[in-house]
Amino acid sequence: MAQRELSIVLSGFGGQGLLFAGKVIAQAGLLEDRHVSWLPSYGPEMRGGTASCSVVLSDEPVGSPLVTAPNVLIAMNQPSIDKFIGEVESGGLVLADSSMIQDMPTRDDVTIHTVPATNLAYENGFKTLANIILTGKLFAETEFCEKQTLLDAVAKCVPPKKQELLEPNLKALELGMSL
């Protein structure tokens, strides 16, 4: 059964592409004409520090775009999983990049999937696309939109000047969907 109401927190190091992954998810919502919002954390941590963003997909107007009780957490480093796992709604979903997280905290009331996304990305020759692998995994777990919509969303988000990145992005997405 598809889960269409999403309040997502994506978090990791700056440079891991979490803001981009969030934008792809929001774009998919837009393409299906739903209410969406995307909000980055912003601050002095331009590189290397923890970067996070909130994405909401809903059939109702979005109230606060700042997600404080996510039903999905996508975490790509240790500080992020430590910081946010306690905030996930009971019954929520956690996708964690196990390549980057040594000590995986546990919770009984949420579904946790660990994916070695960064290693998979390296092995498959698109080393910067662990974020998109996890986006594919999010689709596999929730079917939050039509599959074609998500492919179209990736195509929309890859800038026209970087079209050579489209194909690896789509491959990474398919890989994530197959996990």
Binding site: K23, A26, L39
Partner: peptide
Amino acid sequence: DGLLGQMMEP
């Protein structure tokens, strides 16, 4: 405010 400035929406 910073929220409206930074957030993306359609």
